[in-house]
Design a protein around this nucleic acid. Structure first.
Length: 269
DNA sequence: ACACAGGCCGAAT
DNA sequence: ATTCGGCCTGTG
């Protein structure tokens, strides 16, 4: 399932080469099965309100075809789309998402997954589901008593301070709502350890604001090569460019491009 | 063994 | 407004 192979979520995993994925979502373990290219089967150890929760998680209300039309701005994007089509953007749980992207900086996917799994195994609730053992991701409250040193011992390195600070110094953060998308973005960047890229990711994947266009190293390579005549540009500039090109669906374009770029672009510079 | 990661921060241009 | 070194440490 492309949705879980494009680096937006770190805790869902497949046990059968990609037909079925299991992972934590809020208070439960969810199973998603690709039945046909267009149909996803859903199950969970907690059935209550499952359909509604999954419609939000999988962003079922988005007009996928409309989105495709808007981001198909040229031949290149048509190629990207035909390669990445089927991928769904997720609207993840806010706290887990924030911690994930705070940990992601200057790291790599296997390591990020390892760190997040450790948090689950130590501080999250254990759940048995279909004869397997899973762990929910801890809530902010679950992590209030954990010291910065402990996070360091888990291998977070200099990110330990960011994580501790986020948990302990921004208790109201998740509840805050901002009318203005830009204002929220700036407020996120005021938090220690959150810069432009991480703020964009949290806003896009955690708060469901698909107008944002996070620029990581892969997006940067792609954008510079194809939409900036090979000239260097800052992530800030490229993020703005992405939003100009792909309008209100920039977040989808970003994930489509990411999936495409990781598989198809050679590493240069 | 030893650079290098899906950045951020602060200081110095 | 842009560039640069340092930050931690698991992974390749």
């Amino acid at each position: 399932m492309k949705t879980f192979e494009c680096g937006q979520n770190f805790l869902f995993e497949s046990f059968d080469n990609g037909q079925t994925y299991y992972g934590p979502f809020k208070d439960r373990i969810v199973k998603l099965v690709q039945i046909t290219p267009h149909i996803i089967g859903i199950d969970s150890n907690v059935k209550k309100n499952l359909k509604n929760e999954m419609e939000i998680f999988l962003r079922c209300k988005d007009d996928y075809n409309e989105m495709l039309k808007v981001i198909a701005i040229d031949d290149l994007m048509n190629e990207v789309i035909s390669y990445s089509k089927g991928l769904r953007l997720l609207k993840q749980e806010e706290f887990e998402c924030s911690i994930s992207y705070l940990l992601s900086q200057c790291s790599n996917i296997p390591r990020i997954k390892h760190h997040l799994r450790q948090l689950g195994e130590i501080y999250g609730q254990k759940v048995r589901y279909e004869k397997r053992e899973f762990f929910l991701f801890p809530t902010r409250e679950d992590l209030l008593d954990v010291s910065e040193d402990t996070f360091r011992e888990l291998g977070f390195g200099y990110r330990a301070k960011y994580i501790w600070n986020f948990i302990n110094c921004h208790p109201g953060f998740l509840l805050e709502e901002f009318e203005d998308s830009e204002e929220f973005n700036k407020n996120l960047q005021c938090i220690d350890g959150i810069g432009k890229k991480v703020a964009d990711c949290i806003q896009l994947f955690g708060y469901g604001d698909v107008t944002h266009f996070p620029v990581d190293i892969w997006i940067k390579r792609f954008m510079i090569q194809y939409y900036n005549e090979g000239k260097k540009a800052s992530t800030k500039i490229l993020s703005r460019l992405g939003r100009q090109l792909f309008k209100n669906w920039a977040g989808y374009a970003q994930e489509f491009i990411y999936y495409y770029a990781r598989k198809n672009m050679k590493i240069e510079n």
